[in-house]
Amino acid sequence: MDTTTHVTTGISLAGLSFLDPTIASHPDLVVGVLLCTVIGSNAPDIDFLFKYKGNETYVQEHRGISHSIPAVLLLSFLLSLLVSLFYGGSFFFTLFLWTLISVIIHVLSDICNIYGTQAFRPFTKKWIALNILPIFDPVVMTLQVIGIVLWINGVQPGYTFSFVFLFILSYISLRFFMAQKVLKAVDAKKNEVYTILPSFSVFSWTVIASCENHYRLGKYKRGKVSWSKVLDKNCGDNQIIKAAMKNRFVHQLLQYSPYLHAKIVKKHDGYEVHWFDLRYQSRIDEPFVAIIQLDHKLNLVKSYVKRGLISIPERV
């Protein structure tokens, strides 16, 4: 999820913590719990530090080890230990519990997105992504903001956020079952693999069909799928594409994403090969493109990652 959602989730969890008898009977713990849940709700994104080593490194490391089982436990322990020192070392286990909950919810919510996480490291490096929530979901945000406003206006926070999280869980369940409905609506063809991607609306989804030699991109609305783009797969037969695939970063992307598409841009001094991940089709989904620059002899000149709004190549 986006940072704003993680922050509001942390505040909401602090409100929910009033159901804990220890916190309810010690009002002075509120600030400490709030620190633990808000920071904990953002702690796994400490991997943003990789940005200082460049976008390529960040794309490779984002939602990797920092979202793993050891990291979840370590981040929760260190944060709750630090905050408990302000209370003379008391209430560590209470603070640890709510910190751990906030960090786990961060990872679980990221699993619901397109990007996913390597949440089960060190047991497996497989990326887990359910593709049922957009990076920013207005329904999740609205429900949490309503709860926060009610809390500010004196409504008992524990019960308030019990209902908030119950509604959020119901909403996510609805999205999950809606995703299954979309898959059933696809006119499945032999030797095609389908992936559906969420939008803001629970009734509108992007569909990608992976065929033997090409991808098909479509939209699900009103109970049916309309196909709009067909893109060739890049299997390395083209010598320019083949040369770009020797780049270490592109090689890693090909292992990570099943939906990479390359576009060749001819330049006066050689070529650029733009690698698009077809799963990211809007600004809010953190799209990126890997750009490999080659000279006329197909030698690598430079490679970098561009972030921001990126248009998927036109129909071919």
Rank of each mutant, 00 (worst) to 15 (best):
I11K: 07
A188W: 03
V38L: 11
H62A: 09
T117M: 04
F93W: 15
N299L: 08
L150M: 09
W98P: 02
P157T: 04
F86S: 14
Q144N: 03
L97K: 15
T195P: 00
K246Q: 11
S68Y: 13
Y58F: 14
G54I: 09
L133Y: 11
S226W: 04
Q156V: 07
S25L: 02
F93I: 15
Y259E: 10
A262D: 05
F93R: 13
W227R: 06
N131R: 08
G218W: 01
V31D: 10
D269V: 01
G223Q: 06
S41V: 05
K219S: 12
I152G: 10
Y115I: 04
K233A: 04
R222A: 06
I208F: 03
L169A: 10
S76Q: 08
S66E: 06
G223N: 06
D110Y: 10
N153T: 12
P287A: 07
L133N: 07
Y171W: 07
V72T: 15
Q252R: 12
F136R: 11
S228F: 10
S170E: 02
E314I: 09
S311H: 08
F165S: 02
A24Q: 14
K263E: 13
L309G: 02
Q255C: 10
A24N: 13
Y271V: 14
V316C: 05
I146L: 11
Y52Q: 14
I104G: 00
Y159P: 03
D277M: 03
V140W: 11
K125R: 04
G89T: 11
K302R: 13
H251R: 10
L217E: 09
Q281V: 05
R175K: 07
K184T: 08
S204E: 14
H251P: 00
Y220K: 00
S102C: 05
S226G: 08
